[in-house]
Design a protein around this nucleic acid. Sequence first.
DNA 1: GCGACGATTGGCT
DNA 2: GCCAATCGTCGCC
Length: 186
Amino acid sequence: MKSIAIDFSQPSHIVAPQLIGAHFFVNGVGGVIVEVEAYDQSEPASHTFSGPSVRNMAMFGAPGCAYVYRSYGIHWCLNFVCAPEGHGAGVLIRAIQPTQGLDVMRERRGVDAEKLLCSGPGRVGQALEIVHAFNGRSLTQKPFHLSPAMTPIDVVAGPRIGISKAMDLPWRFGLAGSPFLSKPFR
DNA sequence: GCGACGATTGGCT
DNA sequence: GCCAATCGTCGCC
């Protein structure tokens, strides 16, 4: 059984589909990544479109690190930095199928249903207790644990969600038929 | 210094 | 389906 490490120095839309089916944990809590979105400095939906800033600095840093940002003043969202350093690209983790630490997640989320624990970027942040202190940290070190999918995965692609620009790019990727997606693909 | 807005969610109509 | 909540960041005055 061989495991091929994910090469985060590739463009985000190349890395993104490879993350579907990977196992991801924060302090031992997490599961299977079932939905992601790619962002790149070259397109206006990306936080990095207007160049480096205090907020998006981590996305211009080393590939394979975390980019954590506050969304709508409420939610913490997690991205994996991609492409060569300085490129300003990343992959947003939008949904996870929970496998480890279900009870901890239920407590953090305040809901019981498995489908509501990690289906959506803000929910992932709350369930895995993503905090701003994780910004810029390497995914190969604590508290993270990432292991690539070891079997072929049926990945579907479509337009990204919740954006008003670059709607033409099919840079949302998901595990086909998964009930843990934040929204179904059509 | 200040105001507009967002890679969202959950509750109400 | 619609809309308020909520606040850090950015752009502009």
